[in-house]
C-alpha cells in the first residue's frame, strides 16, 4: 500500500504541471479561433484556462495517472468556415494550430525567467518545491511544444504542414496522414518500452541552460 500511495502521489504531483500546461495549450487554440471569428469553441466554454473545461476523462486523467506515456486533452473544435472573411481558411487553421505550441513556449520562457529571478540555478529537488514546480513547467512546456510540432496527425504540427504543403506533395502527405497516428503511438510505446527517456535530451538541455545562465 505504501508503495502504491507514493507512486500515486508522485504521479499526481508530476501530472499537475502537465494539466496546467495542457489547459494553457487548449486555451490558446480556443482563444485564437475566437479572435479569428470562430466562436465554436467559445460557445462550448473552452476559452478558459480552467483545466476542467479541457479534461478528457480517459486521455487526461486515467492514462497519465496509470503511468501511460501518452495522454491528450479534449480537442478544441474549430470550424474554419466561421473565420472572418479577411482570413483565408488555411491561414486560419495554421494560426489556430500554431497558437497551442506557441503558448507553451511562452509559458516555458516565463517559468524559466521565474526560476532565474527566484534563485541562482536550480536544484530540481523536493527541498525547493517552487523551483521544482517551475522547472517542471519549463520542461513540460518545452516538451509539449516540441511534441505537438511533430508533423504527424493528429498533432498540431500536422495542421501547419497541411496548410503549407505544396500541391505536388499533397498525395504523399495525405497517405502519410492516414498511417501517421498509428506510427506515432507505436513509436512512443516502443521508445518508452525500450527504456529511453523520450525527452531526456530536452531535460538535460534545459538544466544546462538554466544552470549556465544562473551561474
Amino acid at each position: 500500500m505504501e508503495v502504491l500511495e507514493e507512486l500515486l502521489a508522485a504521479r499526481v504531483a508530476g501530472f499537475i504541471p502537465v494539466l496546467l500546461s495542457l489547459s494553457v495549450h487548449e486555451w490558446a487554440h480556443a482563444w485564437t479561433a475566437l479572435r479569428l471569428g470562430d466562436d465554436t469553441a467559445a460557445r462550448l466554454g473552452r476559452v478558459t484556462m480552467n483545466p476542467f473545461a479541457h479534461v478528457d476523462p480517459v486521455g487526461t486523467l486515467i492514462l497519465p495517472l496509470l503511468g501511460f506515456p501518452i495522454g491528450w486533452a479534449k480537442p478544441v473544435p474549430v470550424n474554419p468556415i466561421r473565420f472572418r472573411r479577411d482570413i483565408r481558411m488555411g491561414t486560419g487553421i495554421l494560426l489556430v494550430a500554431a497558437a497551442g505550441p506557441a503558448s507553451n513556449i511562452c509559458l516555458a520562457v516565463a517559468c524559466g525567467a521565474g526560476i532565474l529571478a527566484l534563485q541562482e540555478g536550480i536544484t530540481g529537488s523536493a527541498q525547493d518545491p517552487i523551483g521544482l514546480f517551475l522547472f517542471q513547467m519549463v520542461l513540460i512546456n518545452v516538451v509539449l511544444a516540441a511534441f505537438n510540432m511533430l508533423p504527424v496527425p493528429p498533432l498540431d504540427g500536422s495542421r501547419i504542414v497541411d496548410a503549407l504543403v505544396p500541391a505536388r506533395f499533397r498525395p504523399a502527405w495525405e497517405s502519410f496522414s492516414r498511417v501517421g497516428p498509428i506510427l506515432l503511438i507505436v513509436a512512443i510505446v516502443a521508445i518508452h518500452a525500450a527504456g529511453w527517456g523520450l525527452f531526456d535530451g530536452i531535460q538535460e538541455g534545459i538544466e544546462r541552460l538554466l544552470a549556465g545562465d544562473g551561474a
Partner: peptide, 9 residues
C-alpha cells in the same frame, strides 16, 4: 503539487 512534493518526495 507543492504539498505532494514536500510530503512524498
Amino acid at each position: 503539487f507543492l504539498v505532494l512534493v514536500r510530503a512524498y518526495m
